[in-house]
């Protein structure tokens, strides 16, 4: 009998003690963020979606070799040889450059290996990369494309700007 009541008492006391902890936090400010309306800005080193600058890239292939999942491909730009126009000569520029985000590990090895200053391929702070189709996962860059790149729409046979990409730098900062 005594054991029964002491059990009941201990159970009740544990509930009260637990509630005390909970109540203590009721009056503290909330730690969560109301996501779509309020967005966190990640830290400076954050590894978000990759951006690429076709203007500064010297087409050295180091990022291709550094990538663990071979998701980068690129092609050298060429100019016709002045002596013999039939022969194409390679120059230190990219013709086109693609990253397959379906395979990307977001590991920063490509950024670390890039020799140009500033880096030609780098991680942005964008954590909201969304893809509606597999085509969209492959981002392509050519001379003159914006840093965020374009994707090839197979159905409409045209390059398109990715949708749903936020400009995280514009988002109101919390830290």
């Amino acid at each position: 009998m005594i054991e029964y009541f002491s059990k009941v008492f201990r159970g009740a006391w544990a509930t009260v003690a637990g509630m005390m902890v909970t109540l203590k936090y009721m009056v503290k400010p909330s730690v969560t963020v109301h996501y779509p309306t309020e967005k966190l800005v990640p830290f400076e080193r954050f590894r978000g979606a990759l951006l690429f600058d076709p203007g500064t890239c010297i087409s050295c292939n180091l990022c291709v070799k550094a990538c663990p999942s071979t998701c980068i491909t690129l092609e050298n730009a060429t100019i016709p040889d002045p002596k013999n126009p039939a022969i194409k000569k390679k120059v230190a520029k990219v013709d086109w450059y693609t990253i397959d985000f379906g395979k990307c590990n977001f590991c920063r090895l490509c950024e670390e290996s890039c020799p140009t200053k500033p880096k030609s391929v780098w991680h942005s702070l964008d954590y909201e990369v969304v893809f509606f189709s597999r085509d969209e996962m492959v981002r392509c860059w050519k001379a003159g494309t914006k840093f965020v790149g374009q994707y090839w729409d197979r159905k409409e046979k045209a390059f398109k700007d990715p949708e749903g990409q936020i400009q995280i730098q514009d988002v109101q900062a919390r830290r």
Binding site: F43, R45, F46, R47, N105, C107, R108, L109
Partner: peptide, 12 residues
């Protein structure tokens, strides 16, 4: 971890 390595789960 995010501050030092840039990732929250797969740090490398």
């Amino acid at each position: 971890f995010e501050m030092v390595s840039g990732a929250r789960l797969t740090y490398n």
